[in-house]
Design a binder for these strands. Structure first.
Lengths: 346, 346
DNA sequence: CTGAAAGCGCTTACAG
DNA sequence: CTGAAAGCGCTTACAG
């Protein structure tokens, strides 16, 4: 047990009675090598159960064939689907995947990134907690952001020439809100997710789209735009209760799928059902939404992951070093089911 | 851009006007070093935005501070929760996490494992598609299974002295089936997941527990124990339709959460609702189950991930090399909600 | 305390 | 075609 007794190319060379160089040539398929030598080496390698040490290979080649993905919350199905797509694409292209969870915390994200940099990953896929270059300590700008190929997804960071694969959160939130207004709703709330007061840019954009639509329609949303930390169930429940107790709410837009569960639990406890007592739209479509008849925003998760990974790997393997800034905005759809109905409360 | 211009310890030493050895001592906090030299070196390192190359460190230390997790399906929420827990525990302990998806395919799993071995991971967390040592080609037994610290979770492999963190699938399936029998059901079906005819050991064990309970009660289950590939929606739908068309089914146990969505869709299309027309139990509890009133088996996912990771890291850091075989069976619970009712069809 | 040298396991330019 | 040697970026035993 343990790699202490893992055979090295030196062991193979000795057993085959050739030089380390020849052994390397036979095993690695590079350089010139006679058939006879090659057979001897391959036989020795098999007997010793030799497998190459990629650490050593990486040292020489300056390439680890490893990419990293940094997300705010692996647990979240949305990121889970993206990570799955990334893993698949990466494997196809011969890359391994390191995964990091920033837990929506900036220090953790930076710590992760530095670790990844020092592990010499070939590139990084990043759903950042940062919005702008100016927010990032110079040290990390220099050691990570300006040194490594980076592709951002779901969230963009301004000030870098990165490729970003996004959806238009503002536009979709605007669309959703208009849809509800069109159904006659005038008490529309949003619930977004936060972690220790940190709210993602994504949620901010959705809130803005929502506010813009209400502003246009002349409808107030005072105190109806809240955020909760779904990992703190009791507090979440309390806040949602307050929202529903002290405001006349006819419809709720849940801005993250991570809090849909808790929200539905509160409805359940209050014996409220949708769409009868309240209309509901949720972010991120899931399979069970069909059965629940939940109207929801469907983001192209797999596509986002695939595109981001493909784009990163392309950059890694490209000759020229500096990519242009490029923003790819993917289409998303509002899947209308039966969780919203015409509002008759007025 | 690119790591070509990443500062090395040599650059730092030159700038500080000291030897590489001294630079290393200052940066790495090892050996004796005068305060003055140390300050010079640290200043130089900062100016050059130096970060250590962990590849080189790993080469010398024979430790990568990286563990790997190999699962059959990252997309599956069950594994997602486990991976999240593993990532958290690993980070606490200073380890990075490589993730691999075997997609329930044995060749893919072996390919992954060899890649991980050659990347010199410190240990592997494995939910294997293999059940027994005998099924694994000798080559991989020698290069991976006998060389690396391995902890299996969710699924056990016989024939190795690994630590395994499991739940008792047989017992739980037996319990679930007895519960349904107790409610008067006599047409009880199971739907498990498969991938290209490959059925996980987990599902097999659940099917056996189910069969045992029915056998005891003298109830037949002929043709009522099917598996489907949820990634092939059309085929899945067809098979479930056939199941429901040609058998008198009063209750269904869905053996994997990955197929719950498709199953509910079929019910929806057939305008069947639970528990009125059919009783349903699903594997793996999810937040929305509360709202759906779904009776389901709750496995301790996070705990499984944490324990497996902690146990692996303990082994990695232990002195003695050979662990005893150890099986940790975690408690799971059948969470009874309202998706099952007393059967009155006879 | 400090530096020159060896070595981790590979690959490759250079002689032969 | 083959081998000795250098080097990737570190750490550490060995002299001084």
């Amino acid at each position: 047990m343990g790699r202490e007794n893992q055979a090295t190319i030196k062991d193979v060379a000795k057993r085959a009675g050739v030089s380390v160089a020849s052994a390397g040539r036979a095993l690695g398929n590079y350089g010139k090598i006679s058939d006879e030598t090659k057979q001897k080496v391959l036989a020795a390698a098999e007997e010793l159960h030799y497998i190459p040490n990629k650490l050593a290979q990486s040292m020489r080649s300056h390439s680890t064939k490893t990419i990293a993905v940094v997300v705010a919350d692996i647990q979240n199905n949305f990121f889970g689907a993206i990570v799955a797509a990334i893993e698949q694409k990466a494997r196809e292209k011969g890359y391994a995947v390191l995964i990091c969870n920033s837990n929506e915390k900036r220090e953790l994200e930076l710590e992760c990134l530095e670790m990844l940099a020092s592990k010499q990953v070939d590139g990084i896929l990043l759903a950042s907690t940062f919005t702008d270059r100016k927010e990032i300590p110079t040290k990390y700008v220099k050691t990570v952001f300006e040194k490594f190929p980076i592709v951002t997804f779901d969230r963009k960071i301004n000030g870098f020439p990165f490729t970003s694969v996004l959806t238009d959160n503002y536009a979709m939130a605007y669309t959703v809100t208009k849809y509800l207004i069109g159904l006659g709703h005038d008490g529309i709330a949003t619930i977004g997710s936060e972690k220790e007061k940190a709210v993602s840019n994504t949620v901010r954009e959705r809130e803005e789209g929502y506010r813009a639509a209400l502003r246009e329609a002349g409808i107030s949303h005072d105190g109806m735009c809240i955020t909760v930390d779904w990992q703190k169930a009791a507090e979440t429940k309390k806040r949602i209760d307050i929202l529903l107790d002290y405001h006349r709410i006819t419809a709720v837009i849940v801005l993250n799928n991570s809090i849909v569960g808790e929200f539905l639990n509160v409805l359940d406890e209050r014996k409220m059902s949708f769409p009868d007592q309240i209309s509901v739209v949720t972010w991120d479509d899931e399979e069970h939404n069909i059965y629940m008849k939940m109207t929801s925003v469907r983001q192209p998760c797999r596509k986002m992951g695939e595109l981001a990974a493909a784009s990163l790997i392309e950059q890694i393997e490209a000759e020229e070093p500096h990519p242009e800034e490029l923003t790819i905005t993917l289409n998303q759809t509002l899947v209308k089911r039966e969780s919203c109905r015409i509002n008759k409360t007025y």
